[in-house]
Structure formats: structure tokens, C-alpha cells
Design a protein around this nucleic acid. Structure first.
Lengths: 147, 147
DNA sequence: TCTGTCGTAACGATTATCGTTACGACAGCC
DNA sequence: GGCTGTCGTAACGATAATCGTTACGACAGA
């Protein structure tokens, strides 16, 4: 599967904005978040743009511009973030149509589709159990200065 | 995430071999399976090679060669297949180390690692509930000649 | 008007997967 | 012993997704 860090970076950005706002700041810039995540501000802007489309964050333009949460961290779940930044299904079908003259080739796609639907439903249920509030709590619970 | 059809094709191949053997044949060739899945025999051999390493199938060489199941379909689960053909974890961390001088950058990876572990454990549990026997049953239950 | 940031296009680098060709290795059969 | 069919695997190109980067216009407050 492949290494998808989009959900990780998006959660990082949301936790960063949330903490920054709790420290009294109005908005966070993509440059600040990018420095924390050690990546490029454009990468952050692209991801936050998708989160904005999903109604999780807002952005201001002009001078003193930046990003702010559109919802409380406690009301945002990893499922919200996942659906905002992950495009396709977890598992894919064949890239070409299997041989419909073969019994297995004919029945495999309906069979796997049903099975995958159940599994992805469970995955979504698990993602929905984790709020960004908990993510930030876990982040702050990490031990300082590890030896 | 991206579209990983490896699990789908591997399940297709196992179901095909299982059904073929129930029809009285000893071994199945990669060419036959490739025809059913509408792909190249080398793709099938590569995938079945990984399943062989996991102890799910066996292969014979020489004349009259081919592939056979090393276990009953009822004792093979999608988790066995998943672990055999999917290399990495479901979600990835940052590709570069986050800023360790930032509270969020420092704590985000331990936090997400713990959360991801729980979620992948649930995914594995779901995959383990589906046997290849059930997959084949669902395949054969697909309606014929759909209109 | 100046400044800082967003919004977004464009491009190259990297990586994973897949399809394909090729060819040696192997084992049964004549 | 040679013939034949299949595996085992390397090699290469095509495709697609993601990421990092540069660039630049749009916007809004000072």
C-alpha cells in the first residue's frame, strides 16, 4: 500500500493550528506549519485547501492572513480528515475487466466489492472514534528529551 | 492510498486454483490464471511466488508443472494473503523528520504511531474473519447473465 | 502603495505497480 | 539424451501518485 503520509501531515497541521490558537493566536501561516512538519509551505497549503473544502478549516487572505479552525478539535475526527484528503477506496479492483466467460472472472468483482465494503466500513468506524482533540492530547503526552 | 489491486488479484488466483482443484485437476498454470484475471502470466507468477513464500501455495517445475494450494481454502484468510502481498503499513509517517524543537513536531509521530497501530489491528482482525472459502462461495453466488 | 500570505499552475524527482520480453532452470516424457 | 512446457527472475518501459520546488497573480490590511 503504499505509503500515504497525507493523513499524517493533515493531522499534524490541524493539531498545530489548534494548539497555536489555544495559545492566543488568531491564525497560523502555512510557513509556520511547514517548518514544524519539515516540508514545503505549498504542500501544507494544498492539504489545508482540501480540508477547507471539507469545512474543517478556514483561510484569510491579504496581510495578516493565515489559517484557522472552522470547528473545535473535539468535533473533528480522523474520519473527517481521511475523507477530505484520501481520494480513492482502500483496495482496488483489477485494472482490466476479468474474463467474463470464466466463473471466477465473472464473480470475483462483486464478491470482493462486498467484502471490501464491510472492511472499509469498519475502518471508517475506527477512524471516527479518534478526535483531533485526542491526537493533540497524545502529542502533548509524548515524553520530553527522550534518552 | 491508492489503488492496490494486489490483494484482489491474489484472492482471484487462490479462488481459481481452489475451484480448479475441486474439479479434479492437480495443478493450475500461471497462464490459465492470467487468462481469467486478464493480465500477464508473469504478474501472476510474481504474486504466487509471494504466496508460496508465505506457505499458502506450492509450485512444481518441469513438464506438467503449475501451482497448487498448500492449505485448504477454508484455512486461508484474507489476512494471510494481505500480509503476504502487502509490504508496508497502511499509513505512513512524514518522509522527513519533523522539527523536534516544536512541541507538535516532537510528539506527532509517537502519537500517530499509537493510533495507527490500533486501527491496523482492527483492520487485520476484519481481514482475518474472511476465509478464501467464503470468497469462493461469494464468487459462485454471483448472478449469471446479468441484465 | 507596500507588504505578506494565500491560491494555484507548472515542472522535475521519486516511488510503486504493472505489462511485457527474454531466457535460464527444471522435470517429465518420448 | 533430447524435446517440451512451465516456472523463476531479471530487465525495461509505461503509467500514476505524491512530493518538493519555483513562480506569480490575487487579495486585503497597514
Amino acid at each position: 500500500m503504499s505509503a500515504n503520509s497525507r493523513l499524517t501531515i493533515a493531522a499534524h497541521a490541524l493539531a498545530w493550528i489548534g494548539l497555536y490558537q489555544r495559545q492566543g493566536h488568531e491564525v497560523a501561516t502555512s510557513e509556520q506549519i511547514a517548518a514544524s512538519a519539515n516540508t514545503n509551505p505549498v504542500v501544507i497549503r494544498r492539504l489545508l485547501g482540501e480540508l477547507r473544502r471539507a469545512g474543517l478549516v478556514e483561510s484569510r487572505r491579504g496581510a495578516g492572513a493565515g489559517w484557522s479552525l472552522a470547528r473545535e478539535l473535539g468535533s473533528i475526527t480522523l474520519l473527517d480528515v481521511y475523507e477530505a484528503v484520501e481520494p480513492g477506496p482502500l483496495f482496488a479492483m483489477h485494472r482490466t475487466v476479468p474474463d467474463q466467460g470464466c466463473v471466477v472472472g465473472h464473480g470475483i468483482q462483486p464478491a470482493m466489492r462486498g467484502i471490501y465494503q464491510d472492511i472499509e466500513e469498519t475502518l471508517r468506524h475506527e477512524l471516527a472514534r479518534v478526535t483531533l482533540e485526542k491526537v493533540l492530547r497524545d502529542v502533548l503526552a509524548a515524553p520530553h528529551q527522550p534518552l
